[in-house]
């Protein structure tokens, strides 16, 4: 398998406080990889370093062999990483399709165009992306009136606009109902498979993680304490102690089919 993302010895400290310490891992092509851990373990800090929102104190990030450490988010994006956020950040003054068109305009380097009407550009392409996530019927609605689950799907289609090689998803199902969660992750898993994109996501819903992740990494106090298959991570005693707990709060392996 070819390696898409290669993270080597990534560390970050904020004024002496170590948030992430010597984290190394790889993401393979078309792999759906989960990053879990307690709040404050450094998951978001890790993500922000991968995407360029934060500069690491030490370590390097390679995308398809090219070093992207410390690049600004907009440059990282142009290198082929798409991102969704824990709290959606779509443009609330635009319609659904315009949100996607905006990403397409940026991808095609048309941001300084002052001649054409923006809403007439790349309509078909935008529509295809919306169809991919099942949002085509809501294309002309104002983004501000969308239900939360729909916003999450829209965000996913925006993240796919520039044909990324890797998706970074920070708690993609946060704030969604159980049914929607599974549906969104199923959709993500299908996209990963069909388009051969890799995806790295953080998540607190273990039902989602255990049902879809190809591999799971566990972060605690800034350090990677486990990295392996779902079964391996679930049975890891340290992971149970710091994060999973007694197992009352997610489905047991035996009854994943009903809540």
């Amino acid at each position: 398998m070819s390696i898409v993302l290669d993270v080597q010895g990534l560390s970050k400290s904020f004024g002496g406080v170590v948030a992430v310490s010597d984290v190394s891992f790889t993401v393979d092509k078309a792999e759906l990889l989960a990053l879990i851990g307690p709040n404050g373990a450094g998951k978001t800090t890790c993500f922000n370093m991968l995407m360029g929102q934060l500069a690491p104190t030490a370590g390097n990030v390679f995308l398809n062999g090219e070093k992207i450490t410390g690049m600004a988010p907009r440059k990282v994006w142009r290198k082929g990483i798409g991102r969704t956020f824990q709290i959606t950040g779509t443009y609330s003054s635009m319609t659904v399709i315009e949100n996607v068109q905006m990403a397409l305009l940026s991808h095609h380097n048309r941001l300084f165009d002052v001649r054409h009407y923006a809403h007439k550009q790349y309509q078909d392409e935008a529509m295809q992306l919306l169809e991919l996530v099942g949002m085509q019927e809501q294309a002309e609605r104002a983004c501000a009136v969308l239900a939360y689950g729909d916003l999450k799907r829209l965000e996913l289609s925006i993240a796919l606009a520039h044909n990324p090689k890797l998706l970074l998803m920070d708690e993609p199902t946060a704030g969604m109902a159980p049914k929607e969660r599974i549906a969104l992750m199923q959709l993500t898993a299908d996209i990963v498979k069909d388009r051969q994109i890799s995806a790295l996501f953080t998540e607190h819903d273990m039902d989602v993680v255990f049902a879809h992740a190809h591999r799971v990494m566990v972060l605690n106090r800034g350090e990677l304490i486990a990295n392996g298959s779902v079964e391996m991570v679930r049975s890891n005693a340290e992971v149970q102690e710091v994060y999973l707990g007694g197992g009352n709060l997610y489905n047991n392996a035996a009854d994943t089919h009903h809540a």
Partner: peptide, 16 residues
Amino acid sequence: DEPSEGIAPVIVEQMV
């Protein structure tokens, strides 16, 4: 209001 949202399972157990 949604106290368990975004909280690690082990902490949610304490909340119980």
